[in-house]
Design a protein around this nucleic acid. Structure first.
Lengths: 128, 128
DNA sequence: ATGAACATGCGGCATATGTCGCATGTATAC
DNA sequence: GTATACATGCGACATATGCCGCATGTTCAT
């Protein structure tokens, strides 16, 4: 439901690849790209949990973070949002247009298309 | 250069259709859609001028607002931004994908494609 | 048992943006 | 010339987000 910001998306990308990681691991993986201090990464993760973007799983007392929504689900939401707010169209965008995205695999394009059209159905309400 | 926010975009759409309007006119046109009070519309316009999204033209002492950048220029920028930050791709998105946008006309698709590829050239720097 | 090495929680600051209201100024109508 | 109707400028507040640091706690090796 909540949309990740650009920077939050950067962190999400690591979680999508790795399933679930500790704060320290996420920080180390993303540090070069973000340039953030550990505190900043930490805070970002906390806020993402608060927004429902991440789930916490305790492992022997160590907090571990995992994406609450799948990559495709999230991407479909962002694409839909872009179509609605920026392009101002209700037609679902053709999934094929996103084939070049560095983290959408060819095999996933079809599933993305399905999600895009689904999102088009349940409108107004936010059920399902 | 500055990216308009979703709400700022809504106001821009009126300016693109109408060339140039007074604050009151913009407010009246957008009020139903935004639900804003006049003060809010005013403030939004002021901030857009500060950001360089709008130009002011005085007409007999009455301020008139006009978009600083063309519709296609702005859309190309937003699309490029979306591709880079959300999709994480450097390939320009196919302009054809946006044919359904309510305010991009069929005749404009080609020009949009050109802009999209141009934006791909001058990277890193922000000249031109 | 003392300290290095982390983890967690939380406070804090700046800027952007959504959202107003108020004070002052000007013009126009009676 | 006084009231009415706008225009303009500004201050304000809340929330989101980018960006830290510090205090406290736990763990583990020496």
């Amino acid at each position: 439901m909540a949309k990740p910001s650009n920077f939050e998306l950067k962190l999400l990308r690591y979680l999508w690849q790795r399933e679930r990681l500790s704060a320290r691991e996420i920080h180390q993986a993303s540090q070069v790209e973000t340039g953030w201090s550990y505190s900043t990464t930490r805070k970002a993760l906390d806020r993402m949990v608060a927004k429902g973007l991440l789930r916490i799983e305790q492992i022997h007392g160590l907090k571990t973070f995992a994406a609450a929504h799948s990559k495709l689900q999230t991407m479909a939401g962002l694409i839909k949002d872009f179509a609605r707010n920026i392009l101002d169209t209700d037609e679902p965008l053709p999934a094929a247009a996103f084939a070049h995205s560095k983290f959408i695999e060819p095999e996933e394009i079809e599933a993305l298309g399905v999600l895009l059209e689904e999102l088009d159905q349940d409108d107004g309400s936010n059920v399902k």
